[in-house]
């Protein structure tokens, strides 16, 4: 249960010498009733990152901002978002990771949030605006509930911070592959390989790369050094743009299939 499912996942992918695919999707998009069917259309996922929408997502670019606004407008509350996460893990049998922002957690209290996430069957929690310096109250609540905490490492993070971050024993490290917020990019800043070297020098904790990875080629480029790859905006955008739910599901299936194949 909980964090162990993710530890097993990365042990397996390492044994199979492959990189896990962790697609991100906003819970409640395009609306709470049809959200599960969007998650279900994603192909080749090893685990799902389920985004609880937040009004002021500082770490997200225009695509995921728009998705969050649409989901909130369609009535996606915290409890509804977590019930969608619960349905995702039950119907797919894959682990889910809850992603949100600090204020959402603090408003219900870290203990209550962790209990709600555990009840939903989640395996881990990501808080986008929570650096290690502020993580303790949320991390201890999340771990007390049997879930794993995910902590970030960015291209700007120095060795001393990397050593503090891996010492806090996150269930995996979220490596920020590009400077900037989430979103699709045509060119890469080329930070990922160097970042992974620096994390690996400090620890063998699972390293999952995200931010700015949207094409099969960009995902494949992470294979030599990443335990997993997070792709968000490239999957969210077709749901925002599609005129029908069927079209959205078809586009999401096609893009996710290509990314999953690129990681095999």
């Amino acid at each position: 249960m909980g964090a162990d499912r993710l530890r097993e996942l990365f042990a397996t992918t390492r044994a199979e010498n492959r990189t896990a695919f962790l697609p991100f999707m906003t819970a409640g998009l395009p609306n709470p009733d049809e959200s599960l069917s969007v998650f279900a259309s994603i192909e080749g996922a090893d685990a799902f990152e389920v985004g609880i929408p937040y009004s002021d997502p500082l770490m997200d670019g225009p695509t995921i901002q728009a998705a969050g606004q649409a989901a909130l407008k369609a009535g996606t509350s915290l409890s509804r978002g977590l019930s969608i996460a619960s349905e995702v893990t039950q119907t797919t049998g894959k682990p889910v990771i809850i992603m949100t922002y600090a204020n959402v957690v603090f408003q219900v209290t870290p203990a209550r949030f962790a209990a709600m996430a555990a009840d939903a069957g989640a395996s881990a929690v990501i808080v986008a605006d929570l650096p290690i310096d502020e993580a303790a109250p949320i991390q201890s609540a999340v771990e007390a509930a049997g879930l794993g905490m995910v902590l970030f490492v960015a291209p700007t993070t120095d060795e001393r911070r990397i050593s503090d971050i891996v010492a806090a024993n996150p269930v995996f490290v979220y490596g920020v592959a590009e400077l900037g917020v989430t979103g699709e990019r045509t060119a890469s800043g080329g930070h990922a390989a160097n970042l992974s070297k620096r994390v690996r020098a400090a620890s063998d904790v699972p390293l999952v790369m995200g931010v700015g990875i949207s094409t099969p080629e960009q995902a494949a480029a992470m294979r030599p050094f990443a335990d997993g790859v997070i792709v968000g905006s490239a999957l969210v955008r077709p749901v925002l743009e599609a005129s029908t739910i069927e079209a959205a599901r078809r586009d999401v299936a096609s893009i996710s299939r290509k990314i999953a194949e690129a990681l095999r």
Binding site: M59, L151, A154, T156, V176
Partner: peptide, 20 residues
């Protein structure tokens, strides 16, 4: 040391900004 005025303040920012 943690950037707080009593219970308020702190540094809830994406990791990318922390070194800056």
């Amino acid at each position: 040391d943690r950037g707080r005025f009593g219970a308020y303040g702190g540094r809830f920012a994406p990791e990318t900004l922390m070194p800056a």
